[in-house]
């Protein structure tokens, strides 16, 4: 028997539809540059205009990520971030916000090391809604995806330009919450796809699924956000926000006093992009 999911994704995407706009999904690494600063940013995200929050679970070897996210991971680890504390941050957030969906994103080993069942139970209890685990393709569904669905967590799969029509049904089969379309072949924070390519990809995905579609990788500016959110259900921005965090550190890597304000100000600019998106 599967537990019911939290329903936060379906409520949030329905609300976006009703508002006639696409959504903004923001990605930062939990604990970057340290627990307190990161928490301050996360707490401020909904008010700044993030519709869904993706929180990175730091990992020593993020092999699908570019330099920005790698550095964020290492900063968080150096500041003592642990998987248990990522869950703690979500718990603290949930005490003040019961609506904004939270996705944890990362790599499998820290979860495997923590213990899959223990992790899933604690994640659900802390108020996590979904998981994105980069190194778990459908071929490894029995590891975490199926147990996660059973535990009432959404498992959000990545579809990529290399996922052809023949493979898409496999990728979509146990996906829930939304589908994350990785718009370029490559790592985070490097290349960007053209508007036309994103539009064509979203149309292709829509032929296979009714789930909301979030598009990410290489989205950096309010203009990018507006363009993507007008064809997809949401635009995901990660490295560009993380670069604002990196830019808010002093010469010793310590946060300057206005770090959170600066990052949230930038998120506000991105959010203004979706407010004019028309959306799906």
């Amino acid at each position: 028997m599967s537990a019911a999911d939290s329903g936060r994704f379906s409520r949030r995407f329905a609300a976006l539809k009703a508002a006639g706009r696409g959504g903004l999904i923001t990605f930062i690494t939990a604990g970057d540059p340290d627990y307190e600063s990161s928490k301050q940013i996360v707490f401020g995200l909904p008010e700044a205009g993030a519709d869904v929050i993706e929180l990175g679970m730091p990992f020593s070897d993020p092999m699908a990520d570019g330099p920005s996210v790698q550095a964020a991971s290492l900063r968080a680890l150096a500041a003592g971030m642990k998987l248990a504390r990522v869950l703690e941050m979500v718990r603290e957030f949930r005490a003040r916000d019961d609506d904004t969906p939270i996705v944890l994103m990362g790599y499998y080993n820290p979860i495997y090391s923590y213990g899959v069942d223990r992790f899933l139970a604690e994640a659900r209890e802390s108020g996590v809604d979904g998981l994105i685990v980069v190194d778990l393709p459908p071929e490894e569904d029995q590891e975490l995806c199926l147990p996660a669905l059973k535990a009432g967590l959404n498992f959000i799969r990545l579809a990529t330009p290399t996922t052809d029509d023949q493979r898409l049904p496999t990728v979509l089969s146990n996906t829930s919450g939304f589908v994350y379309y990785v718009s370029v072949m490559g790592i985070t924070g490097t290349k960007s796809a053209t508007e036309g390519a994103v539009k064509a990809a979203v149309e292709r995905l829509r032929r296979h699924t009714d789930l909301p579609i979030g598009v990410g990788f290489g989205i950096k500016t309010p203009e990018n956000v507006r363009a993507v959110a007008s064809v997809a259900n949401a635009a995901v921005v990660g490295s560009a926000i993380i670069d604002r965090i990196a830019g808010g550190l002093d010469g010793n890597g310590r946060p300057k006093p206005d770090l959170a304000a600066g990052v949230l100000g930038y998120v506000r600019e991105l959010a203004a992009g979706v407010r004019g998106s028309g959306g799906k």
């Binding site: 092999m63 699908a64 499998y108 980069v134 190194d135 778990l136 393709p137 459908p138 071929e139 490894e140 799969r157 990545l158 579809a159 990529t160 330009p161 290399t162 996922t163 052809d164 493979r167 990728v171 990785v182 072949m185 490559g186």
Partner: peptide
């Protein structure tokens, strides 16, 4: 067939690489 030696091995890669 899934590349396992007992519980070891497997294919833990990003979706972009999986078709390849």
């Amino acid at each position: 067939e899934q590349g396992h030696f007992g519980i070891f091995g497997g294919r833990f890669v990003a979706e972009t690489l999986m078709p390849l």
